Simulated scan of single mutants.
Amino acid sequence: MSEQLNKTALFDMHVAAGAKIVPFAGYDMPVQYPLGVKKEHLHTRDAAGLFDVSHMGQLRLKGKGAAAALEALVPVDIIDLPSQKQRYAFFTNDAGGIMDDLMVANFGDHLFVVVNAACKEQDIVHLQANLPEGVELEVIEDRALLALQGPQAADVLSRLQPSVASMLFMDTAVIEINGIECYISRSGYTGEDGYEISVPNDKAAELATALTSFEEVEWIGLGARDSLRLECGLCLYGHDLDTTTTPVEASLLWGISKNRRADGDRAGGFPGADIILKQIETKDVNRKRVGLVGQSKAPVREGCKLFDAADNEIGIVTSGTAGPTAGKPVSMGYVRTDLAVIGTEVFAEVRGKKLAMTVEKMPFVPQRYYRG
């Protein structure tokens, strides 16, 4: 722990719960609790896990042209985002690379934006430099962010506030829980059903105490958060995505709204659009993000080089885990486009040995979002 690092409003609760604290994105954050990473992972898949994600950036965009202004920076339909709905988006640069990925919610009178912790300062500067007059950016610094994830999350939260049970995946609402005004989305970063809850800093411990009082709920650290998201094929910015990687290379075509593509009614108009739209049209990219499953028991971690059967270097692993739920080592990474085919065998170099892996479809375990 270090004095110069930020602490979330729940820091003392983590210490009291026996968390191992590590520096992460400028914060002292819990990487695991006494339960341990594997058991935390499995508990979230089986019951409900509570995550402190207050290190993420929470922003508010207000003003008549807010949706159009944000849409000019992302290849996503923001103008037609319905009220009380949320959408995944990413900032692109002039080279078509991804500057950050983010979540955008329409609360009617403003847009609520959640950005990655490691990118929030640059995202704020990027927005401030590009927002037109009349659109106001507010950096929210007085709210914590909790994620309640797992198959029993809805049952647990509905005991405190019954109305959350009727929310669907990517619905958002401003709702009181135990008298506390919360911004809630039915979403998360584990592949499970669940909620992300923005709560005032001075009420965060009260809400977290109420949630962890249920026997179904355990505190979950960053370690299990990483293995959970990877099993469900979700990218981690700065590892699986970066400024040199386009959405097409990253296999994120689903994240580009149809009306922002070449034949859409609001085609282009975002940074790097000419490059990205051409890649969509021609499918001409040198590498693609793929899922990889190990044929041995050894996990294949980030940074391992990938080779073909003729020992030619053909890519790199960007994330890897032992796969506690999948029951086998799972990774994601980038390979030469001609090898990005389901069933292709590649080889990862781990401590001087070449371990066989197979290109497989993601997610590695089923996503269980609640769509009604």
Rank of each mutant, 00 (worst) to 15 (best):
P200N: 13
P200V: 12
D202M: 13
K203H: 10
A204S: 10
A205P: 13
A205C: 15
A205W: 11
L207M: 04
L207F: 03
A208Y: 07
A208M: 07
T209C: 10
A210C: 11
A210R: 13
L211F: 14
S213E: 11
S213D: 13
E215M: 02
E215Y: 03
E215L: 03
E216R: 04
E216P: 03
V217I: 06
V217K: 00
E218I: 05
E218Y: 07
W219I: 04
W219N: 06
I220H: 04
G221A: 02
G221K: 00
G221T: 01
L222A: 09
R225E: 07
D226R: 11
S227G: 02
S227V: 00
R229G: 01
R229S: 02
L230E: 09
L230V: 07
E231R: 02
E231P: 01
E231K: 01
E231I: 00
G233H: 01
G233S: 02
L234Y: 12
C235N: 11
Y237T: 06
Y237V: 06
Y237E: 04
G238D: 00
G238E: 01
H239G: 11
D240N: 08
D240A: 07
L241G: 09
D242W: 06
D242Q: 05
D242F: 07
T243P: 08
T244P: 05
T244Y: 10
T246S: 13
T246M: 04
P247E: 03
P247D: 01
V248A: 08
V248L: 10
V248P: 07
V248E: 09
A250N: 05
S251H: 14
S251G: 14
L252V: 01
L252G: 00
W254V: 12
G255P: 03
G255K: 11
